[in-house]
């Protein structure tokens, strides 16, 4: 195991960096996109609600790998060339955003409807009521399930390995096949994933405790 680390630490470090970068980008954008679609699902406008439903149902029910392949293989055939890292990150963002939308929507709907009514009766517009009153309460409620989504996201970033995204999983595959030391190669990769996900998991718990 030591030899895997000493011989391949540069590749592993690079993979860890790619996995981290992909995760941070996908987490950031999927949270924004997901929150928007969650709001679309509860707005008075029927058109927006339908758009949100269609988006969520499509991307929640297609394997992540298929979405990623679409961006890696299909899009370049008609539009622009997309490298593996970009295709994987876009795929992961879209896929996760559908789950985040559902999570945040359930949070919005578990906030007492009286909060929205009180805000509207107080003169606020729908978006002001959402922004200042409903969403802050909804996010507090959904921190634990959102934490699960974030952890899944980090692990799902291993989809990059299939599209030459040079992430941890990709490096693990390469090291395993060149060194023939599969056990230790994947063991080290597993530990490196834990190094990202464990602090994330603890941070979400801390956030949950602090807000209650």
């Amino acid at each position: 195991m030591i030899s895997i680390i000493t011989n391949h630490w540069q590749d592993l470090l690079y993979g860890l960096g790619q996995t981290l970068l992909c995760s941070i980008l996908a987490l950031f954008f999927s949270l924004i996109i997901g929150s928007f679609f969650a709001i679309f699902e509860v707005v008075p406008s029927k058109t927006l609600r339908i758009i949100a439903r269609v988006y969520i149902e499509i991307f929640r029910n297609i394997p992540l790998l298929v979405i990623t392949m679409f961006f890696y293989v299909v899009i370049p055939m008609f539009f622009v060339k997309v490298n593996g890292f970009t295709a994987g990150t876009i795929g992961l963002t879209i896929y996760t955003s559908a789950f985040i939308a559902e999570t945040v929507r359930s949070g919005i709907q578990s906030v007492d409807p009286g909060q929205m009514e009180g805000s509207r009766a107080n003169g606020m517009t729908f978006s002001q009521a959402m922004r200042y009153v409903v969403l802050p309460q909804a996010f507090r409620i959904v921190i634990p399930p959102l934490g699960n989504q974030f952890i899944n996201l980090v692990k799902n970033s291993s989809v990059l390995a299939f599209v030459a995204g040079f992430d941890l999983m990709y490096q693990g595959n390469t090291i395993a096949s060149t060194s023939f030391d599969t056990l230790n190669a994947y063991f080290v990769v597993g530990v490196l994933y834990l190094i990202i996900t464990m602090p994330l998991s603890y941070y979400m718990r801390y956030l949950e405790k602090r807000l209650n």
């Binding site: 007492d112 009286g114 909060q115 107080n122 309460q137």
Partner: peptide, 12 residues
């Protein structure tokens, strides 16, 4: 203005 039976104060 409106005052409700269950107050509807902003909990946050």
């Amino acid at each position: 203005g409106m005052v409700f039976q269950h107050f509807n104060l902003y909990q946050n």
